[in-house]
Design a protein around this nucleic acid. Structure first.
Lengths: 195, 195
DNA sequence: GTCTATAGAAAGATAGAC
DNA sequence: GTCTATCTTTCTATAGAC
């Protein structure tokens, strides 16, 4: 049997990568508490022992999975001027229950119940998506408006995809996009109109 | 020993009520997966067996806890005209990490990772807060705008209280209220301005 | 009406062989 | 580099005594 006979047999880096991918999938689908180390191991084609060998513990595995998942942009583009319309459209498309099930917001919402997972995710938000979005906004309170935009994204993802409430899953996508575009626009301005 | 010697000894209704109160507290603090039947029982001063005797299973106990928790209004008032400012003020006050830790949104956010819990909560939202808020809004798409408002509430609660991100916990409450008031206002109108 | 005791399953983590 | 086997804990749920 050659070394290329089986995928990544006796290849530490490839095995580690396979475990990490399986972990992202499992944590996104079932959350921190709902995903087991055995389950991740089986999906990666290894035993549970190897997971702890490479990552130390379930908690550290989760931390790496979160960091990887949060590193790439999801619904926020690069153009500040087009932000409201573009973000609203992407949000409506990706929160459809039939959409791609692998994204950082599902991972976040399904793991938020665990206190340790919440800490890990708070730090990852500050390092990745929070920083990215803050850079797109202008004004003195850009940081807090950026996190309010994140709140809206997470909230819509919760109601429309995780809880799947009828009024949002059945809503017309175009009208939904209009409403959300208005919301994001209200948060793009540095100072709101004081009533 | 008289029958009033100890609180609710041999009083089925009072014992049941004590268990339900303890369950709401535990599920709100730790979520569906994080709260154990033993823990609930101990807080109510009974054994774990009684919990299942009165409620059948952990899942049914959770269903009753959710229904009770979602039944009363939290941040949405009775006056439609004052909705944006009043809701924004209440939301900022109650999502402060030092605020009262017993509310339906924390219960919801910390339990959303469990699929069965998500179903139970979806139904409770339709029965209680979704119906209440829909009644306050006018226009043909009131139902979907009501759930968008709920999305904003839940999202802010997640970021500011559950995850406790620095930019939101450290933000000036007055300015936060202004921003959120603008967001709610954008969702109060039946049809948004098309770009 | 409430208890003790326990069944039965599943979790995270580790020891030690090859 | 990866395995089998197991330790220890924790969970929900139930049987049966008083």
């Amino acid at each position: 049997m050659s070394v290329t006979d089986q995928p990544r047999r006796r290849d530490a880096a490839a095995t580690r990568e396979a475990i990490l991918r399986a972990a992202i999938e499992a944590f996104t689908r079932a959350g921190y508490d709902g995903a087991g180390v055995r389950e991740v191991a089986a999906a990666a084609g290894v035993t549970a022992m190897l997971v702890n060998r490479y990552f130390g513990s379930k908690e550290q595995l989760f931390a790496e999975a979160v960091d990887r998942s949060f590193a790439a942009p999801t619904v926020v583009g690069a153009d500040p001027a087009a932000l409201p319309a573009q973000l609203a459209a992407a949000l409506v498309a990706r929160t459809d229950p039939a959409s791609e099930p692998l994204n950082p917001y599902l991972l976040m919402l399904r793991s938020a119940g665990n206190p340790r997972a919440a800490e890990i995710m708070r730090e990852a938000i500050g390092r990745h998506v929070g920083r990215r979005l803050t850079g797109l906004l202008t004004g003195p309170d850009a940081g807090e408006r950026a996190e309010l935009v994140l709140s809206v994204i997470a909230g819509v993802w919760l109601m429309r995809d995780v809880l799947a409430t009828p009024a949002l899953t059945g809503a017309d996508p175009g009208r939904l996009k209009e409403h959300l575009s208005g919301v994001i626009q209200a948060l793009s301005r540095p100072s709101p109109d004081p009533a």
